[in-house]
Design a protein around this nucleic acid. Sequence first.
DNA 1: GGAATATTCTAATAGATGTTAGAATATTGC
DNA 2: GCAATATTCTAACATCTATTAGAATATTCC
Lengths: 224, 224
Amino acid sequence: MKTRLLKDALYEQVARIGKAVSSPKRLEMLELLAQGEKTVEALTEELSIDVKLTSAHLRTLKEARLVVPRRDGRYIYYRLAGKDVANLWVNLREVAEEHLVELKLALRQISESPSQLVAVSRAALLEQVISGDVVVIDVRPQSEYDEAHLPFARSMPLVELEKRLSELPTDKEIVAYCRGPFCLLSDEAVALLSARGYRIRKISDGVSEWQAAGLPVEHNSCET
Amino acid sequence: MKTRLLKDALYEQVARIGKAVSSPKRLEMLELLAQGEKTVEALTEELSIDVKLTSAHLRTLKEARLVVPRRDGRYIYYRLAGKDVANLWVNLREVAEEHLVELKLALRQISESPSQLVAVSRAALLEQVISGDVVVIDVRPQSEYDEAHLPFARSMPLVELEKRLSELPTDKEIVAYCRGPFCLLSDEAVALLSARGYRIRKISDGVSEWQAAGLPVEHNSCET
DNA sequence: GGAATATTCTAATAGATGTTAGAATATTGC
DNA sequence: GCAATATTCTAACATCTATTAGAATATTCC
């Protein structure tokens, strides 16, 4: 029957998206690109893989229309095709976290001490920030902060943290965040600052998680 | 560095979910299972594939923890591991619809005449139903209706439609729905009823789409 | 225009996956 | 216990995918 042929064609198309997200390296790329556009070189660096392999994976993502390239001089910048793509990544990760025991176990290695994690809800945290009880710092690279960041968050890239300690309050609780639950930047910040006596904890959310939950984020530079 | 090894392990786990949803047949299974649990035989029938292949695909889905089997007598019933899995399917389909031109084109073959589609929003439709201006019929098999259905919807399986015409109002608009945008049952209902002079249109939503949008659905039988 | 740089394209191979067929397992009904 | 039924398990093959290496392209800088 011909309805079978039509159905096959429909599911085949959705499977193109599925195939694109079936590789660990491509998923890592999507998470990085969710922080803002990046060059092939930058992605290569972050993923610790060969440039040619990066290019090949980007090609796959491009063919599934999940990423879009833009040339600027000698560099080619890739960005996500839309917010829905960042959302899909969060969705996939959450399903994996919910159902895969192996992932739950592996995640425990990141935040070994649960005391590092902020206990309150997103909404409650936001209130604490507004009332001034808590300072939220974004420890990702400056460029990612510029692209989008949590409301009221201050940019404090991990690499600059040690020389900018004077900017941090000693009488308030500090909450760090980075790219999401798989990102280790905020954990390094917690380690560094708590060793120096600061009251610091982290949230596992990144901008994508915040947005996927329907909460607003702030932008510095104006974009589409 | 050891953080690379940890990261690789994390993304590898999420990729298990990605691999599970990278096959058209498995996606079709997920959509069917989103309507309620089904036997291997029933899935085989719907997908028009070999039983052994159905079993192999179910195994893959089971290993990714997306589906759960339950034995009852001679039959084994499979169901989704959670609502988040149905949600993931909707999410994947929506990303595909948004970015893949080929899918947009293929979808036009289903609802060739846009007049068949209900123009109003989900919320507005609900109001029309409550006020009695519109009757919503669920043309999926009875068992799927029993599992979950749109609020105020009447069960009117496509196979029984012709002999139950007397139950349908001739003075109101009828709105049909089925499993979702890829399902053809509601289109057949529109064809059948409009040929007999009924005022009938369809919505492309199914229960999963409705739920993914955060709207409530009704259950007949009580389950977890 | 020519050298340098960033990235892609092409080709090749090892490994993973989809599909099919045949044997094996678990349950029911007698 | 035995036949019938539903499903899975094992094995095999063709196909697709990830990865690596070398050549080609496009841009900038001089």
